[in-house]
């Protein structure tokens, strides 16, 4: 009982939602209860989840990063051009693409932390810039933009399609990055710094924390995670295109916010983000299996986003109101 009370209530609610989701979709279509199908579906939302983990970091510091989707496209194009057009070894190309993704995050971070410009504006400009650079690279290389760069080696496609002891690589990557994110955010000193910066940047600064460096680092991590997502997506789809990840903005923010992270900063966690990304991911397959058109998925996630935030903000207010009433009564009594 003591252990159970330590789990945040929001995460408990998310687990309940996830379990009931699995039960309901399974009743509609028993194929949904096939474990290998569920694990295989991780490939469809691994990008959203991975970026979501580290956008959680950014959001806890009080910032926001909407450039992740376009960094996916840029990484994908860089890997494709380097390995297929320039002819560099695929693994070296991947490494270089990750460096590019990290640099995108670094640029965001420097301008936001040291230039002290609003995160929303910078990452909006970054979103245009990074996808713009990807389009320029494709345009200059003379590759058809609509077909993309294909012809990747077999070893590259095993990144997404391979498995270890029956567990798909995407699930392993999900778990590994979740553990890394969890340790960084919830078990390390660095994580405490992130929370303190988000709760009160000035106070954290006076306490001797280099808050600018902390903020900068969260954007680098977020950019890097988008790089990982871009490589996974390129491997999964077997081609590199500049417009990959273009529609990721909404689901990324949905999983972070649905996971219980406050958009105003100071509160949140990666476990919630992980649970929320599985909920949203399973929702998509469940709706497809249930015979619903994919159009309705947007409606479902949109409603989920608004309702979860409404519940989170209203429940806070509700709690404080109840506390005030109880206190008043105890004074009178």
């Amino acid at each position: 009982m003591h252990m159970l009370s330590k789990i945040p209530k929001w995460n408990l609610a998310l687990v309940l939602v996830l379990v009931s989701e699995v039960i309901i979709f399974g009743l509609i279509n028993p194929r949904f209860w096939n474990v290998s199908i569920l694990l295989g579906s991780f490939n469809d939302f691994i990008g959203i989840a991975v970026i979501g983990f580290f956008v959680t970091f950014v959001m806890i510091t009080g910032g926001i990063d909407i450039s992740g989707g376009s960094i996916i496209g840029l990484t994908s194009v860089v890997v494709g051009i380097l390995s297929q057009v320039v002819g560099i070894n695929i693994w070296l190309s991947i490494l270089l693409a990750l460096v590019v993704a990290g640099l995108c995050g670094l640029l965001n971070g420097i301008l936001i932390a040291y230039g002290r410009v609003q995160a929303m504006v910078i990452t909006l400009g970054g979103m245009l810039l990074y996808s713009g650079i990807a389009v320029v690279i494709v345009g200059l290389s003379g590759v058809s933009a609509s077909e993309g760069i294909s012809g990747f080696s077999q070893s590259f496609s095993t990144i997404a399609y391979g498995s270890v002891m029956g567990i798909p690589n995407s699930v392993i990557l999900f778990v590994v990055l979740l553990i890394i994110a969890y340790i960084l955010l919830h078990l390390s000193k660095y994580g405490r710094y992130i929370f303190l910066t988000g709760i009160n940047q000035e106070a954290a600064e006076y306490a001797g924390i280099n808050t600018k460096l902390v903020i900068l680092s969260t954007y680098v991590l977020s950019g890097l995670s988008a790089g990982f997502a871009g490589i996974m997506l390129t491997s999964y789809l077997g081609s590199a295109r500049a417009d990959f990840g273009g529609e990721y903005l909404m689901p990324i923010l949905t999983v972070v916010v649905l996971g219980g992270t406050l958009i105003t900063g100071g509160k949140g966690g990666v476990i919630g983000t992980a649970l929320a990304s599985i909920i949203v991911g399973f929702l998509q397959i469940g709706m497809q299996m249930g015979g619903l058109s994919t159009q309705y998925i947007g409606l479902a996630t949109g409603l989920l986003l608004i309702i979860s935030v409404a519940i989170l903000s209203v429940s806070d207010e509700f709690k404080s109101n109840v506390k005030r009433i109880v206190r008043l009564k105890s004074y009178k009594g």
Binding site: M120, L253, V257, Q295, L305, V309
Partner: peptide, 27 residues
């Protein structure tokens, strides 16, 4: 109403609304 009365962050509220209106348009 969502932003002023329910205290939902305007970014989230309107982002959700964007998705919902798009789906309604398609339907």
């Amino acid at each position: 109403i969502g932003v002023a009365k329910l205290n939902i962050s305007s970014f989230i509220m309107t982002l959700g609304m964007l998705e919902i209106t798009r789906v309604i348009q398609v339907i």
